[in-house]
């Protein structure tokens, strides 16, 4: 019973944070269309600040958002290009497989966004304690 209750509590918490991830994903997508790559940190900084989650959670959800966004975009291009470009970049970087190039893209975007979201949340926590 207790287990059940905790999981339902977690679920509602997760859906709130999932909305955070979704919002980051969508705004980052739009900003990235017009602005340089580092614009993907803006949604994380602002939304991380507003959502005031714990540092670790903020990092993870910020990470997830751009992992999915950049990873998804890269995977889509990889497939519709028959892996020609990703294959060449894999050779250039000596990483073996084009899918690793997709993965690097996802992790890179995720890490930057995660760090930004965490920074946003930390700034707000600092203000709250001050």
């Amino acid at each position: 019973m207790t287990n059940d209750r905790r999981s339902s509590f977690n679920l509602s918490l997760s859906s709130k944070i999932m909305l955070l991830a979704l919002l980051i994903l969508i705004t980052a997508f739009i900003l990235n269309l017009f602005l340089p790559w580092w614009s993907i940190t803006i949604p994380g900084l602002i939304l991380g600040y507003l959502y005031k989650e714990k540092a670790t959670a903020s990092f993870l959800w910020g990470f997830l958002a751009l992992f999915l966004l950049w990873g998804g975009q890269a995977l889509y291009i990889h497939i519709s290009n028959d892996g020609i470009m990703s294959g060449r970049i894999a050779d250039m970087l000596g990483v073996g497989s084009p899918l690793i190039v997709v993965l690097i893209t996802a992790v890179l975007g995720g890490f930057i966004s995660g760090l930004a979201t965490m920074t946003g949340s930390l700034v707000n926590q600092k203000e709250a304690t001050a």
């Binding site: 340089p36 975009q73 893209t105 975007g109």
Partner: peptide, 11 residues
């Protein structure tokens, strides 16, 4: 690696 403006954009 930026999917919109990096090498992916040349695919």
């Amino acid at each position: 690696f930026d999917p919109d403006a990096g090498f992916w954009a040349n695919a």
